[in-house]
Design a protein around this nucleic acid. Structure first.
Length: 879
RNA sequence: GCCCCCUUGGCGAAAUUGGUAUACGCAGCAGACUUAAAAUCUGUAGGUCGAAAGACCGUGCCGGUUCAAGUCCGGCAGGGGGCACCA
């Protein structure tokens, strides 16, 4: 006999240690298993201090899949680790005057325990942190391999500098002109930086998106836009001879355009302030030099770019129009032309580009329309200050007149490709991408050291493999400004491995996104003495189901796709794409509360009352009223946080797991509410009563297995249970956890009804059926509430754990319907029902329907105009 | 500015090949048990009209296709997200 209420606190700790002792979730790094592999992975956490509800939701979803797939007979890999390098550790260390390492590992210890208290079926034997020397040692090896394969280079470039975090940021890490972490407006600086050649893979990364059919369309679209492919023409314009000839190193100017069809509408050329031609001219012209400096002072924040005026400087140079004899175009330097896209120079066609229009109006340049909108007459078509960018036919363009835009583009390309300037074709077709190379240098301490050495004589050379790892020093001074590695008295001083003379270590560390770009591969054999163990990594990858936040749609997921390609080239794995299935889960959100002074109040500090449907909140300690605000993402600043530890100690992990899965579809935000959690907990107790009630029927064990029945003798509850099982099976495999939970709710409702009709004196067959149904139900909710499931299972079977049981099988024959109730519509509106045999022929259904009283009445003796019978679905009588 | 997504009861949501709209849960209301409360159980529940049977209306708004539209098409409104001086 068991206690009346289920006590999660004792049960959860007990079963967690039982699973642990049995090493149920630990897998040897084997490839020889006869079972099919399944790799489920949730994005690993940054060890910020404590886990939050977002983690609970993310890891619960992953755990449901892992436990479900395990029950389905797969070898499931479900590892966990820590994305442990990064700036917060440095900031915290500075504040508390400790080493970032200590802060990080302390946090990991706390968070590991929190995750374990949730009962996740994780393989902790594979755990690592990216700040472990072993992990970043392997990463340094990878880095040198990439370098050897020409996937990494170093160059001086204009970079995004975060003045608060005192570091360089990748383009992907600049959001609206501000640093992604600090939020500070980003400045431009010229620094020598390390880059990954991700742009080598622009086309590959783009086209392979089509094959990722188990990724959300939204993420694929975002990546497509980010890679930003555009087809166009690179055109060489001849520079007219002038007195400046002597200072120019080239007699042509190259531009990239996607609109060669508008070439006859061109009225000016514009160079980027950083264009080589600009630089050459500036060296001989103080005015140009001054203009370039002015452009460089221009900010790069969102507001500054939006309000920035189009500014230009006429260089006096002119280029020849390729098709119009005697026509030439002025060459400007313009502040809106980007050096790192295309060729850093454009031709301006004001009539059909808004930016060019603004520029032309400002400097009094010609505006010639060359595309006629379909609804316009040539005579009446003229342009004010708005460029026309739509479809139409070409006008004012000599041999292009009357062509479509598409045909005109082609025609221009064909002509210019044949046209030779100084023996070179005047144009070639080109495809450009927005995607830039990934700048990975960070001027920070708490990251993976870049394994290179600078020697005055030998240049920048890799650290020899035997000298790896380059380990971060423990004795650092974080209170100085700048990079502590650079300030360290001895760490950077080394002998050149080439010539043996004094040399300096590279003091930049790697972007932490490097760490997370291959951790999923390392999990397959985390102790391997090479970055990966080929036999093992090729067996386990790709990740079958990856789960994480949408915020990584571009950064992490694009970098990982690049790394997979780079690791393939360097022989570390054989794989096209790292993540076969991707799921982006929604956030956990909560109401916000503020007191009369506008201070944010935490949910734990208030009481909610409800009268006449109106909810009011009051402070617990002072009874002061509190205003209820918008529902927002849980955040420290708004204090609308619910601590998972509090929920676990009050209701237990299973209640928390059930709740985060139950209300909302997993890709949408879930609103955390006290009432919702209590509802989930009530259901936990209901199951407990149902299971114990069934146990109290007293079933002789000999009756239970196997159950003897036929389709005719099967009790209704058995059919209901098998139907629910079929549905739950389908819904879990489609990650529709909220729907699976609704099914289980319905099933439990039905089973409570069924149990009520039984007693100890009922027939053994009825009791055994009930027992079978309950055991099946326990297995169904086990992936979501594993502790409760074990505790319930134990009542019937003390020898095995649910976690070791295989998933129950649906009796397909039992759930096939023998008769059906079809809705009957008259003129498309439901007016009644008809009961027919499941396989009834159309004729028979028609006869049955026409015999119905309400159909006869509607027809009043006439024949129906139409009679539509959709088998298994519906009947519609059109009168 | 460009691109994408969403809009269903008081609330979270189901309806996943165009075929019974509102399953399941939360909050509510009524009742049972109880000295009482909690816990638990039962019933009820889109709107309007009606005593009832029932009728009509109803998935953001307007229109279309269809025997049949939450679902498909066109337009509009509101909300959210991504990119953004990319030639």
């Amino acid at each position: 006999m068991t206690s009346e209420r289920y006590n999660p606190r004792a049960a959860e700790a007990f079963w967690q240690s039982r699973w642990d002792e049995a090493k149920l979730f630990n897998l040897e790094p084997s490839t020889s298993s006869s079972r099919e592999k399944y790799y489920v992975l949730e994005m690993f956490p940054y060890p910020s201090g404590r886990i939050h509800m977002g983690h609970v939701r993310n890891y619960t979803m992953g755990d449901v899949i892992a436990r479900y797939k395990r029950a389905k007979g797969f070898d499931v890999l479900h590892p966990m680790g820590w994305d442990a390098f990064g700036l917060p550790a440095e900031n915290a260390a500075k504040k508390n005057n400790i080493h970032p390492k200590g802060w990080t590992y302390d946090n990991i210890a706390v968070m590991r325990e929190q995750l374990q208290s949730m009962g996740f079926s994780l393989d902790w034997s594979r755990e690592f942190a990216t700040c472990d020397v072993d992990y970043y040692h392997q990463q340094q090896k990878l880095f040198l391999d990439f370098y050897d394969h020409d996937l990494i280079y170093r160059k001086k470039s204009r970079v995004n500098w975060d003045p608060v975090d005192q570091t360089v940021l990748a383009n992907e890490q600049v959001i609206d002109g501000c640093g992604w972490r600090s939020g500070a407006p980003v400045e431009q600086r010229d620094l020598t930086q390390w880059f990954f050649k991700i742009s080598n893979y622009s086309e590959e990364l783009l086209s392979a998106l089509d094959g990722l059919d188990r990724w959300p369309e939204k993420v694929r679209t975002m990546q497509r836009n980010w890679i930003g492919r555009s087809e166009g023409l690179k055109i060489r314009f001849e520079i007219e001879a002038t007195s400046a000839d002597a200072i120019l190193t080239s007699s042509t100017l190259e531009v990239f355009t996607t609109r060669p069809d508008t070439l006859f509408g061109a009225s000016f050329m514009a160079l980027s302030p950083e264009h080589p031609l600009t630089t050459q001219l500036a060296s001989h012209s103080p005015q140009i030099e001054e203009f370039v400096k002015e452009c460089q002072r221009q900010g790069t924040s969102l507001a500054e770019i939006e309000t920035a005026e189009k500014k230009g400087f006429d260089t006096g140079l002119r280029v020849k129009h390729p098709f119009v004899e005697g026509k030439s175009l002025p060459v400007y330097i313009a502040n809106f032309v980007l050096m790192d896209y295309g060729t850093g120079a454009i031709f301006g066609c004001p009539a059909h580009d808004q930016r060019d229009m603004d520029f032309a109006r400002k400097y009094g340049l010609e505006v010639t329309p060359v595309v006629l909108p379909p609804d316009q007459q040539e005579a009446s078509f003229y342009l004010q200050d708005e460029a026309y960018i739509g479809e139409g036919l070409i006008i004012n363009s000599d041999f292009l007149n009357g062509l479509s835009i598409e045909d005109a583009k082609n025609m221009v390309a064909i002509r210019l490709e044949k046209n030779l300037v100084n023996g070179v074709a005047q144009a070639e077709r080109q495809i450009n991408y927005r995607l830039r190379d990934w700048g990975l240098s960070r001027q920070r301490f708490w990251g993976c050291p870049i394994p290179f050495i600078h020697c005055d004589d030998c240049g920048t050379i890799p650290v020899p493999q035997n000298d790896l790892p380059v380990v971060l020093p423990d004795d650092i001074d974080l209170n100085q400004s700048g990079n502590p590695l650079e300030m360290h008295p001895t760490w950077g001083k080394v002998k050149c491995p080439n010539c043996g003379m004094s040399a300096r270590r590279e003091t930049d560390t790697m972007d932490t996104f490097v760490d997370s770009s291959w951790y999923f591969a390392r999990f397959t054999d985390p102790k391997s003495e090479t970055p990966t163990n080929r036999a093992v990594v090729d067996h386990w990858l790709p990740v079958d189901q990856y789960i994480g936040g949408i915020e990584h749609a571009i950064l992490h997921l694009l970098y990982s796709r690049f790394f997979t390609r780079a690791m393939k080239i360097t022989g570390h794995l054989e794989l096209k794409e790292p993540f076969r299935g991707l799921f982006t889960q929604g956030m956990v959100v909560h109401e916000t509360y503020r007191d009369n002074d506008g201070n944010w109040i935490a949910p734990a500090e208030i009481r909610i009352d409800e009268t006449d449907g109106k909810r009011t909140a009051t402070l617990l300690d002072s009874n002061q009223p509190v205003s209820i605000g918008a529902i927002e993402k849980m955040s420290k600043s708004k204090r609308n946080i619910v601590d998972p530890d509090d929920i676990i100690s009050t209701y237990g992990a299973d209640t928390a797991r059930w709740f985060v899965l139950s209300d909302s579809p997993p890709d949408r935000d879930v609103i955390w509410s006290e009432a919702g959690v209590e509802g989930a907990h009530r259901f936990v107790q209901r199951i407990w009563r149902l299971v114990n009630g069934t146990a109290n029927l007293g079933v002789s064990s000999s009756m239970a297995n196997p159950l003897q029945y036929t389709k005719e003798t099967a009790p209704e509850i058995l059919v209901t249970t098998h139907k629910a099982l079929a549905n739950v099976d389908k819904m879990i495999s489609e990650l529709r956890f909220n729907s699976a939970i609704a099914q289980i709710h319905s099933l439990v409702n039905a089973q409570e009804q069924a149990l009520r009709k039984l007693s100890q004196t009922s027939g053994e067959f009825e009791k055994a059926t009930m027992l079978f149904c309950i055991k099946t139900t326990i297995q169904m909710f086990a992936p979501m509430m594993p502790h409760l499931a074990e505790e319930c299972w134990k009542i019937f079977d003390n020898s095995k754990m649910v976690a070791t049981m295989i998933w129950p099988e649906v009796d397909q024959e039992l759930i096939v319907e023998t008769s059906m109730v079809l809705p009957v519509q008259i003129n498309g509106k439901k007016r009644g029902e008809v009961k027919v045999a499941a396989g009834a022929a159309k004729d028979d259904v028609e006869k049955a329907v026409l015999a119905l009283d309400f159909v006869q009445a509607a027809l009043s003796g006439k024949t129906p105009r139409k009679l539509i019978v959709v088998p298994q679905r519906i009947v519609n009588v059109v009168v």
